[in-house]
């Protein structure tokens, strides 16, 4: 029962974060690239003001998988590095914490680009 509830929370929080972006796309004509940037920066800001960590504890991947979670990881990374190393941690912490994700995307992105070529877009509904 507890497992089901936790999955429902993950689903609902993750889905809700996507719905906010969908409303921004449909109602304000904000482009997807701007939304991604806005989400990452908001994630950093919300973590800084202490809102995002409780949400991440509450919803798990529902809060960490959306791109706000990427911002959360950046912010937690600098906090940890500053605690350990002082001011230099402000420069090293963010990218260190997110290095695995960025490296995966770049490395496998490159490998897939070696293998595939683009296919024309489909029109069928």
């Amino acid at each position: 029962m507890e497992v089901i509830t936790s999955y429902l929370i993950t689903f609902a929080v993750g889905g809700a974060l996507c719905v906010i972006a969908q409303l921004l796309i449909d109602l304000t004509k904000l482009t997807p690239a701007r939304i991604l940037v806005a989400y990452v920066v908001s994630g950093v800001a919300l973590t800084a003001v202490g809102v995002y960590e409780p949400l991440a504890d509450f919803a798990g991947c529902g809060a960490t998988v959306p791109l706000t979670g990427f911002g959360y990881a950046l912010a937690k990374g600098v906090e940890k590095a500053v605690d350990e190393k002082g001011l230099i941690g402000a420069l090293t912490g963010g990218l260190t914490a997110t290095a695995a994700g960025i490296a995966t995307a770049l490395v496998f992105g490159y490998i897939v680009a070696l293998i595939f070529r683009a296919r024309p877009k489909e029109q069928i509904k």
Partner: peptide, 13 residues
């Protein structure tokens, strides 16, 4: 993202 995190890092420090 990095820009925001560095700003937050300095403020946090």
């Amino acid at each position: 993202g990095t820009l925001a995190s560095v700003v937050w890092g300095v403020v946090y420090y």
